[in-house]
């Protein structure tokens, strides 16, 4: 039963040599066909995956920063809008006050000038009426006197009268 065992017969050193050659040849073929390209591809893939992870992380932080920026811009625009509305309101208030004050002032001045005009008018009318009454009374008086005075007396009388008028006017 042990007859087929190599140790029971002469050692086949040829087989050893054959297997060593086979093994080294196989190792060489595997290195050329599979080992080199596949390990290279595996390391390339590992690099690519780590790069992808890095870039994903980077784009994530970029996106977060962008969101924060947008949020702050939005908040700023809200505040700006509120400020604009506030300014417009205060401007309107100011303008309204100004217009009211102007209108009041206008009315006041109009009123005073109208009062002044009225006073002037009344004064004028009064003085006119005075003059008219004076000249009318003179006319009446002259008409009454005309019958009794001659031309010289009349002239003297009129002159004295005119003089009197001038004095009266001066005073």
């Amino acid at each position: 039963m042990l007859s087929h065992l190599v140790v029971a017969q002469s050692l086949y050193f040829g087989d050893s040599l054959f297997y060593i050659v086979c093994f080294i040849l196989l190792m060489w073929l595997i290195k050329i066909f599979a080992w080199k390209p596949i390990t290279k591809m595996m390391s390339d893939r590992a690099d690519k995956i780590s790069n992808d992870i890095d870039s994903a992380e980077k784009s994530r932080t970029d996106a977060a920063a962008l969101v924060a920026k947008r949020q702050s811009a939005l908040n700023a625009s809200h505040a700006e809008a509120a400020e604009i509305v506030q300014t417009a309101k205060s401007n309107g208030q100011e303008q309204r006050d100004q217009i009211m004050a102007q209108a009041q002032a206008d009315v006041q001045s109009l009123k005073t000038s109208a009062q002044k005009d009225i006073d002037q008018e009344r004064e004028d009318a009064l003085s006119h009426a005075k003059d008219d009454v004076a000249s009318l009374s003179i006319e009446i008086a002259s008409k009454i006197i005309q019958r009794e005075l001659n031309a010289d007396d009349q002239k003297a009388l009129i002159d004295s009268y005119i003089e009197g008028l001038g004095k009266q006017h001066e005073s």
Binding site: V6, Y12, D15, L17, F18, C22, L26
Partner: peptide, 22 residues
């Protein structure tokens, strides 16, 4: 050198299968 036919033939077959698979 002395070679055993069985070992040489079997070894060659294994070698060829391995190369074909790879």
């Amino acid at each position: 050198l002395t070679f055993s036919t069985a070992n040489v033939v079997s070894g060659t077959i294994v070698f060829l299968i391995a190369v074909a698979v790879i």
